[in-house]
């Protein structure tokens, strides 16, 4: 027994040997490219101005201006109404998209792919970009925000709906068809009971996201509490921004908690 047999070296194909280096070089190239071309004005970031702002802004953020509470809550309420309207619109309008994109419902490859692409295309854009366009179209009012929320939500809900529909138990559908049920009857007795809880759950989940999204739409004039954020930051009224922040954090957290509770009971 030799005390000193080293383990044999691992046998690797050339690609396996090269792979870590290739990945490393690609990553390194990306980072070099990034850090050499990004223009951060460090002189401004670390300037007297910054220090002054820091000492002014931060303490004010943490001492909310409670006198604005009524105004802020009013606009927060409007924000919630916008989110609700947009989400509900989307929750309904996404249903046909979901069915068209589901392979087990619509046996037409072209329709499936086209709906999936449409849904993907919508999801490529942040709500704020959509809202910017709609503000240009219908003017700066909550309506623009609601439409942006609704369209953005259709993208996600349509995709999730189609996944739910594709995962249902088709045996039930088959059994009903064997009983002589027509298409509408199959839909109401075989399909809808299977998908309703998940559809609702996703719609409520999307409402959480839409509440967050609605809080900022006002920044470009699409209604809600964001309107106030723009005014307060332009006026450098940081204690009002502090209050808005606090209200957003509390309301969003509460909505997340309530929504999680409802969704737990649904599924």
């Amino acid at each position: 027994m030799t005390e000193f047999t080293l383990p044999p070296k691992q046998k690797k194909t050339p690609w396996q040997k090269m792979r870590p280096y290739v990945i490393g070089i690609i990553l390194l190239a990306i980072y070099i490219w990034t850090f050499t071309s990004i223009e951060i004005r460090w002189s401004r970031v670390f300037s007297q101005h910054t220090i002054e702002s820091l000492t002014r802004v931060i303490p004010q953020l943490f001492s909310p201006d409670w006198s604005a509470f009524g105004k802020v809550m009013g606009l927060m309420w409007e924000t919630l109404l916008m989110a609700y309207t947009g989400t509900l619109m989307a929750a309904i309008l996404a249903i046909p998209f979901g069915f068209f994109a589901a392979r087990n419902m619509v046996k037409n490859k072209f329709l499936n792919t086209a709906s999936k692409w449409a849904l993907n295309a919508i999801r490529a854009f942040p709500e704020l970009v959509l809202a910017l366009m709609f503000v240009a179209a219908v003017g700066p009012r909550p309506f623009a925000g609601v439409i942006a929320i609704a369209i953005g939500s259709i993208g996600m809900l349509g995709k999730l709906y189609s996944e739910v529909i594709e995962s249902i138990d088709m045996n039930v559908v088959e059994a009903l068809e064997a009983n002589g049920a027509n298409k509408i009857q199959v839909l109401f007795y075989g399909i809808i009971p299977q998908i309703i809880p998940e559809f609702l759950s996703y719609a409520i989940y999307r409402f959480e996201i839409d509440v967050r999204a609605s809080t900022i739409l006002g920044i470009i004039g699409a209604g809600g509490i964001g309107t106030l954020i723009t005014i307060a930051t332009t006026n450098r009224n940081w204690s009002e921004v502090g209050l808005i922040l606090l209200v957003i954090i509390v309301v969003v957290t509460l909505i997340d908690i309530i929504s999680a509770q409802i969704r737990k009971r649904l599924v």
Partner: peptide, 14 residues
């Protein structure tokens, strides 16, 4: 819970 654009506004202020 804080929207990123709101954070951006604050940091732009600073």
């Amino acid at each position: 819970t804080i929207p990123d654009i709101l954070l951006a506004l604050i940091f732009v202020g600073i």
